[in-house]
Design a protein around this nucleic acid. Structure first.
Lengths: 168, 168
DNA sequence: CTGAATTTTCAAAATAAATTGAAAACAATA
DNA sequence: TATTGTTTTCAATTTATTTTGAAAATTCAG
């Protein structure tokens, strides 16, 4: 397979993969493009390579920056802004975990702990089922939260090498 | 807070949470409703409680069954079908992991390993960056795959109790 | 300050995704 | 087998999301 074709397929698949996880297709594609690009790109480069509008690129780039996955790069003597993506997969993954945890998991756990405090007879089977379900999810979520917290603080070699020992 | 209100809020939040992860709002809401319901429900019960159409309920119930999260229940002497959800959070979580792994992660890893085999000078910086990125993601993905594989085989007490020791 | 290059914004348009509802298929009963 | 209750299907519709593109704002050089 030729590089151009492989790039194309990678970008397109990464976009499709992203949508399955609630990430906008174009955002995922821009991210993919920057990850496989050796040099930083301008908005125009991205527009051209992905065939999307200027506004679209601009907004999604800003999102990617807010996710901590893309950085602005100043090229000496150049007027235009350049953009580059973090290439280290471990850093990318932990960054995504960190952000989704902050934006989604933490608020959800906060809500669940509030929902557990409900009026009514704890002997009533509907009340009991509600509390059991919600507290079960909350406990699991809290444990997952702790695990992810430690994961983002750990380093890659732990993940690649040490993890297997856990399961013996 | 009253049970009815809490249920309402749980279902609505679970639906919103789901959409952020690429799950249809109604599917997530049906799942939420069944998880907090002590008794199995019929399609009509669900239609009424969530204010959605028969077709919608039917399709999403089938999806939930295919995800292994909901079961048909035969109520003796009843003509209608009843549905119930797995209530054990650990089982729910591992089931979702198992399915998403099978449907999304595994095919992605398969694709990535194919994309690594590209023609061209490995000294070329674009070729090198492409291979490095793709193989970095693939290696990480494979490790995550292994970890999840073991997780779904482990049991809940391991997760709740034993996991912390890992990080010492 | 002026003007050209560049970035940002956002209402409108296009696209994609989810939902409806009625007809068809199916299942159980008599 | 005919009737009735129930489930399933899917084309049409509605709703939600994403994208566009042109105008406004910003930035920089002279």
């Amino acid at each position: 397979m030729k590089l151009t074709e492989a790039k194309q397929q990678f970008i397109s698949s990464w976009g499709a993969f992203g949508t399955q996880w609630g990430i906008k297709r174009t955002m995922a594609q821009i991210h993919a493009l920057l990850m496989v690009s050796a040099e930083p790109l301008t908005q125009d480069d991205i527009m051209e390579q992905l065939n999307v509008s200027r506004g679209n690129v601009n907004m999604n780039i800003r999102d990617l920056i807010s996710w901590g996955l893309v950085d602005r790069v100043v090229m000496q003597g150049e007027r235009k802004e350049y953009f580059t993506a973090e290439k280290d997969t471990w850093k990318v993954a932990t960054q995504i975990i960190k952000e989704r945890k902050k934006r989604e998991l933490d608020p959800m756990l906060k809500l669940l702990s509030q929902l557990e405090i409900i009026e009514g007879d704890k002997k009533d089977k509907d009340v009991k089922q509600f509390i059991d379900t919600v507290s079960g999810i909350r406990k699991f979520g809290n444990q997952a939260d702790k695990m992810l917290e430690m994961m983002v603080k750990a380093d890659e070699s732990w993940f690649l090498g040490g993890l297997l020992k856990i399961f013996k």
